[in-house]
Design a protein around this nucleic acid. Structure first.
Length: 486
DNA sequence: CGCGTTTGACCAGCGC
DNA sequence: GCGCTGGTCAAACGCG
């Protein structure tokens, strides 16, 4: 019988879990046969000392030979006391100390590489930003965007404070852990606070192998990082990512295997809402809801929740990264309070805002909606300051082209990381599903090169300075990507 | 027969 | 406290 999937009851693999499991596994490996390859997918630290592993294991093998041991550790103990009282133990201890020292040294190297990487990213961002601003100025001169100023996403809204690569594996986008990137069909979850956001705080995690890898940040970071990670984890579990796309098929193929576990008639929508659970791995917390839009039956609304805790095929990884990044953006604080913040204005009103307004209940979780139904150039992102103090948002608008940003370099770096992450996310979505190709291709163009759109508070901005080399495209005054929170 | 879907029932949260 | 709604469960059912 299947139990409820309460967040606390799920076998989530946290970063600490990974490390502990890997560490314990490595210890067992050393005692057993010395093959540390098993833990490579989790921790490459094992790769740092292959010879040492062999030396330790071979020692165990040597002392165990012919002793009919109950365990390798017993064999080591008896051998040490009977044959080589202290010398071998001392050698082993010395070897262990040496390994620890080497481990520290290698970690230091990783830190240094990370810093260099961030520095280079910052330089790259500055170049791209300059080009984008110049482009915006040119477009304004040409009469673009109603003569509005050109707000740019505040750096801190785009940036994840954490380093782009702190772990042992290549990192990619994910909101993972996301534990819950919850997505909600906007058409059925009205009255939610809605914003249009240019990515804020895109979490950079690894490879999509473990969507909970977001938590791995704490594995090598300090306690503060761990705390932030925990906070992020909790928030992401409540986040949803909704994708609106025109599709005739009952369910958009996203590369994952799903099992339908329920169907309900949702209020305000004649079309039933189907509930699916990821079946690619036992205990995977990811679920999704599929429902057709009440106003336009051709629009399929797919709402994702949580993050996969298992390896994904490339197509599924791409989609997972998309939703995860979107959820991370949402939860990073780029939200607008319907009661406390500035209400959405016409400058960035949602194409389906009226639908949302018909609903009386706010969605229980923050929701980000990726609207892929708005034609060839559907997406523009508008960031708004969070209604609460956020370390990611200190109120520095980068909207003045002629005014250099007062942000520190690190924030620049982080913004660059987020911008690149967002682009990668959209590209991943395109790769994962042909149905999204047209809309998302336009999205990429918009993100990278579109003239910014002003919001009514003057702080929000479109993403600028995206990935070099991608084509520019004019921006429609219509929003496609929205973020709604409650 | 196994697996996935269907569908009514159940539960929890929320507003009145 | 009651009703509404969203979300989930699990037995029944269908299909290959």
């Amino acid at each position: 019988m299947e139990k409820k999937h309460s967040p606390s009851g799920l076998p989530f693999l946290h970063s600490d879990d990974f490390l502990r499991r890997s560490a314990s596994k490595s210890i067992r490996t050393l005692d057993d046969d010395g093959s540390g390859d098993h833990v490579k997918p989790h921790i490459k630290e094992m790769d740092l000392f292959p010879t040492n592993n062999r030396s330790l294991s071979s020692s165990s093998f040597d002392v165990n030979n012919g002793l009919n041991l109950l365990s390798s550790t017993q064999g080591v103990s008896r051998t040490s006391t009977e044959k080589k009282p202290n010398t071998e133990m001392s050698v082993l201890k010395f070897e262990l100390e040496r390994l620890h020292e080497e481990n520290r040294r290698l970690r230091s190297m990783v830190d240094q590489i990370t810093r260099n990487y961030n520095e280079l990213l910052g330089q790259l961002f500055m170049v791209v930003q300059t080009q984008a601003l110049a482009n915006n100025n040119q477009q304004l001169k040409d009469g673009g965007v109603n003569g509005m100023s050109t707000p740019i996403v505040p750096v801190q809204q785009l940036v994840d404070p954490r380093p782009p690569s702190y772990g042992y594996k290549r990192r990619e986008l994910s909101a993972s852990s996301p534990a819950n990137n919850r997505m909600e069909a906007v058409s059925t979850e009205g009255d939610s606070r809605t914003v249009q956001v240019q990515g804020k705080r895109l979490s950079v995690v690894e490879d999509g192998i473990d969507e909970k890898s977001d938590q791995r940040w704490g594995s090598m970071a300090d306690d503060q990082s761990k705390n932030e990670e925990q906070v992020s984890e909790v928030a992401l579990r409540k986040a949803r990512v909704s994708v609106r796309a025109i599709s005739e098929v009952p369910m958009i193929s996203d590369g994952c295997q799903w099992r339908k576990y329920g169907q309900k008639m949702a209020k305000g929508n004649p079309c039933p809402r189907a509930y699916y659970r990821c079946t690619m791995a036992v205990g995977c917390p990811v679920r999704k809801q599929v429902q057709r839009c009440a106003e336009d039956k051709s629009i399929l609304i797919t709402t994702y929740e949580a993050t996969h805790n298992h390896p994904l095929p490339p197509a599924a990884t791409a989609m997972a990264k998309t939703t995860s990044a979107a959820a991370a953006m949402l939860l990073s604080g780029s939200t607008t309070s319907k009661d406390g913040g500035v209400p959405p204005s016409s400058s960035y009103s949602l194409p389906y805002a009226s639908t949302m307004a018909t609903q009386s209940a706010s969605p229980p979780f923050p929701t980000i909606t990726l609207d892929l139904t708005q034609g060839p150039n559907p997406v523009h992102y508008i960031a708004r300051p969070p209604p609460f103090p956020s370390p990611l948002h200190d109120g520095y608008p980068m909207s003045a082209p002629d005014k250099p940003s007062p942000l520190p370099e690190m924030q620049m770096v982080q913004q660059q990381q987020r911008t690149a992450s967002m682009v990668e996310t959209v590209k991943a979505a395109i790769a994962s599903n042909p149905n999204f190709t047209a809309a998302l291709a336009a999205a990429i163009s918009t993100i990278v090169g579109a003239p910014p759109t002003q919001t009514n508070d003057g702080i929000s901005a479109t993403i600028n300075g995206g990935v070099p080399g991608l084509p520019e495209s004019p921006q429609l005054p219509q929003s496609c990507t929205t973020f709604s929170t409650n």
